[in-house]
Amino acid sequence: MAAREMTYAEALREALREEMARDERVIIMGEDVKINVWTVTRDLHKEFGDRVINCPLSESGFSGAGVGAALTGMRPVVEIMYHDFTLYAADSIANQAAKYRYMCGGGDFKVPIVFRVAGGGSSGGSGCHHGQSLEATFIHFPGLKVIFPSNPYDAKGLLKTAIRDNNPVVFFEHKLCYPIKGAVPAGDYTVPIGKAEVKREGKDVTIVSYAYILHKALKAADQLAEEGIEAEVIDLRTLRPVDTECILKSVQKTSKLVTAEEGTKMGGVGAEIAAIVAEEGLQYLDAPIKRVAAAEWIIASSAYADQMGIPQVEDIARAVKELF
């Protein structure tokens, strides 16, 4: 089918629109989802009426209500406005949605829900209550699937897959990705959960990244190429389950691993990737693993300073060069 250029936000909206048209059990819940600051759910109520539900400010409450609706025949897509506010909803996501099926003994109990965690990613001084990247917090929980796309094509295809999945999915989005444009096919297609993608091939070092900072990793790879280092860049796309095979295959080829994320280092996504490679592919490595992550800081609420602790292109390039 013909592909058009559209933004990440538009691609997400198209996925929602198509899935709502395809399956009347799909509903949207969240704060201000009719006008919607992110534009992702904007005006869908004009087409789908009561299936787009403006919820009160109660992240724990409407996330829990989504679980109840999912248990009994609906397929809610719940928007949590910023990564930061998932901590209000954490019980509903990690204690309830993730564990419901198991605790009830499986069978007919299932929780087909998507938590779209919008926002994220520091920018413009929004600071530590509107700018954290909290995806690593949720990779810890069996029962959940965790996705974080970097581009419009994956955003649409993965959101569709997430909506069709019979398990709770935490679908992270990045506010700096919303305006990014890319080719998106019209009509139906899906991207599988649990499959990473090699975005750039290279033989000298593997950079594992995802979401917005992936674009910085690709820029770093371009710079490194000018200096004669060919980096292979992997977009994880799904953080749980993680595509171990893709990472190990690349590291086997390059013998070097750098991870790049926007969240903090300790207990981060990079820590997990590093651990997987240490456990299953240490023999492939000829240098230490480098993790590029946020500084050990609180994101400053200052348009001037808020990038100071967030890894930039140069930080990734520098980390790579330290291995040679």
Partner: peptide, 25 residues
Amino acid sequence: IMGRPGVQAAHVPIAAGVGLSIKMR
């Protein structure tokens, strides 16, 4: 019987959601 939580009150919003689903269906 939709599941007894171990976390006090976690099920109250869930009950509201079951109610919402009943209405929508």
